[in-house]
Computed example of a mutant assay.
Amino acid sequence: MAKQLLHLVYGGELVDPQSNEFRDVAEIDVVGIFPNYATAYDAWKGAAHKTVDNAHMRYFIAHLHRLTDAEEETSATQKAG
């Protein structure tokens, strides 16, 4: 069984298409959390295609497993130190 690597897909309307600042954080669309990059990518692609006509809309994939891994490393370092 493959290791579970959680990914979050989210997006919304940006203040400027050249930035990553959302116009209204309360309106961020959380598409979902997915068990691997491939399924997250499919969800990202579907959400992005629905909003292709709005240049200010942008969707992202966040690698949640990297945050969890970093927390585990920090906890292990604190215990050892």
Rank of each mutant, 00 (worst) to 15 (best):
H63Q: 15
K45G: 01
Q78S: 03
Y41S: 09
G81Y: 08
G11V: 06
Y10R: 09
L5M: 12
A43D: 02
E73W: 05
A40S: 00
G32W: 15
F34L: 08
L67C: 06
N36F: 03
H63P: 10
D29A: 08
Y10K: 12
L5W: 10
L14P: 05
W44R: 10
R66H: 13
L6I: 06
L67S: 08
V25T: 03
H7E: 04
L8M: 02
E21L: 12
R58A: 09
I28T: 03
G12C: 06
Y41A: 07
Y37D: 04
E73S: 05
A55W: 10
V9H: 02
D42G: 06
A47V: 01
E21I: 11
P35V: 03
L8W: 03
L14D: 03
A70H: 12
D24A: 08
T74L: 09
G11W: 10
K3F: 11
A26K: 13
T39Q: 11
K50P: 02
D69S: 06
E27N: 14
K45D: 06
K3C: 05
A70T: 10
F22L: 02
P17Q: 12
A38Y: 08
L14V: 06
I28Y: 02
T74G: 00
Q18H: 14
Y37G: 02
E71H: 11
V30L: 15
D69E: 11
S19P: 05
R66E: 13
N54W: 09
V9A: 00
E71P: 01
A80N: 09
Y10C: 05
A26M: 07
E27D: 13
Y59F: 14
A62Y: 04
Y10V: 01
H56S: 11
V30T: 11
H56A: 11
S75C: 05
V25K: 13
N54C: 06
A80H: 10
T77N: 04
V15C: 11
I33R: 09
L6D: 09
G11F: 08
A38L: 09
S75E: 10
E13N: 05
L64Q: 09
D29R: 13
K45A: 07
P35W: 09
E13T: 07
A70M: 13
G32R: 15
A43S: 01
V30I: 14
S75D: 08
S75N: 10
I61M: 03
Q78L: 12
A2E: 14
D29L: 10
Q4R: 15
M57H: 14
E71Y: 10
T51C: 07
K50I: 02
V31F: 02
V9G: 01
L5D: 06
A47L: 04
E27Q: 15
N20V: 15
A2C: 12
V25G: 00
L67K: 12
A38K: 14
W44K: 15
I33G: 00
D29T: 07
W44V: 04
K79M: 07
L8H: 05
H49K: 10
K50V: 03
L6H: 14
G12Y: 05
L67I: 08
A38Q: 12
A38M: 09
A48V: 04
